[in-house]
Computed example of a mutant assay.
Amino acid sequence: MNLVLFQSEDEAKFLPSNDPRAIHVRDVLRMKVLDTMYVGVLNGKRGLAKIVKDDDAGLHFEVDWEEKVFSFLPIHLVVGLPRPQTARKILSECTTLGVKSISFFQAEKSDPNYIQSKLWKTDEWQRILLRGAEQAFVTIVPNVSHYENLKEFLCIRDKDTDVVALDNYEATRHLRDYVKKSKETILVIGPEGGFDKAERTLLRGNDIPLYHLGERVLRSETACVSAIGLLLGKV
């Protein structure tokens, strides 16, 4: 646990005993009164918190807030809706990496039942974002959105922002050959199983180039992380 995130500065002064994070601080980290740990406010400040009291109610803190401002990578991730277990990994890893937004679209090869999973019907996806930010030692989390299909996303995208798509089946150029032309980049990745013919036609019709990551076919979450890593070299 690199950081504990709260909703406000007032909330960051106290962690109730029944909160799993308080249990972790006491039983795993074995922290005591006068020990320090980092806390943060979601999409706000980070600070060094000193435990000033530990009683039955919980842990009480005094926080020395930093003035540091966190920023996202200039990368927007767009993914064909995958299985919930894959989506969890994408949300976690890409939040930790620092992408600016994560969008999911209902692809032709996406099972329509995926969106009905508890991941999306509860606040589980939001909790995953928080854990990803805490791992990264930052307070910011990406915006997450859903689209009915790829066409809907392409209709609302910023036309002045670079868009590149990963397609290991029909692309002829490696992503490392991409030449950045705008401040930000939209990275489009198909669902598990890849784009279908109509989606490829739609991408090409919008002048969106197709790239690959090599001969190997990667899992969706691995492709996301690998592609973001390559784009980082162009920031």
Rank of each mutant, 00 (worst) to 15 (best):
I90M: 09
S92N: 15
V69I: 11
P74F: 10
T96G: 12
E62D: 13
G40K: 03
D64Q: 07
L97F: 15
T36M: 06
I115C: 01
C94D: 13
G98C: 06
I75R: 03
C94G: 07
D54A: 15
K45M: 00
V78A: 03
H60F: 12
G47L: 08
K89D: 01
L81W: 08
I90N: 10
V69R: 09
F72C: 03
V78H: 07
V63M: 05
D54R: 14
G40I: 01
A57D: 05
A107K: 02
L34Q: 14
C94I: 11
T96P: 01
D54F: 15
S101Y: 10
H76Q: 07
D64S: 09
A107Y: 00
L48E: 12
G47S: 06
H76F: 09
F61G: 08
D55S: 11
L34V: 10
K68T: 02
E108Y: 11
K45E: 01
C94N: 13
S110G: 13
G44I: 05
E67S: 09
H60Y: 11
V99I: 11
V41L: 09
T95L: 08
T95C: 05
L59Y: 03
N113F: 10
L81H: 11
N43L: 07
L34H: 15
S71C: 04
K109D: 00
T86D: 15
V52M: 10
I102S: 00
N113C: 00
P74R: 05
P82I: 15
L42K: 09
F70N: 10
K68F: 08
L97E: 07
V78R: 07
P74N: 06
D111G: 06
A57T: 10
E62A: 07
I115P: 00
V69L: 06
Q85Y: 14
S92W: 14
R46Y: 01
H60A: 04
A87E: 08
V41M: 09
E93L: 15
S103V: 11
H60D: 02
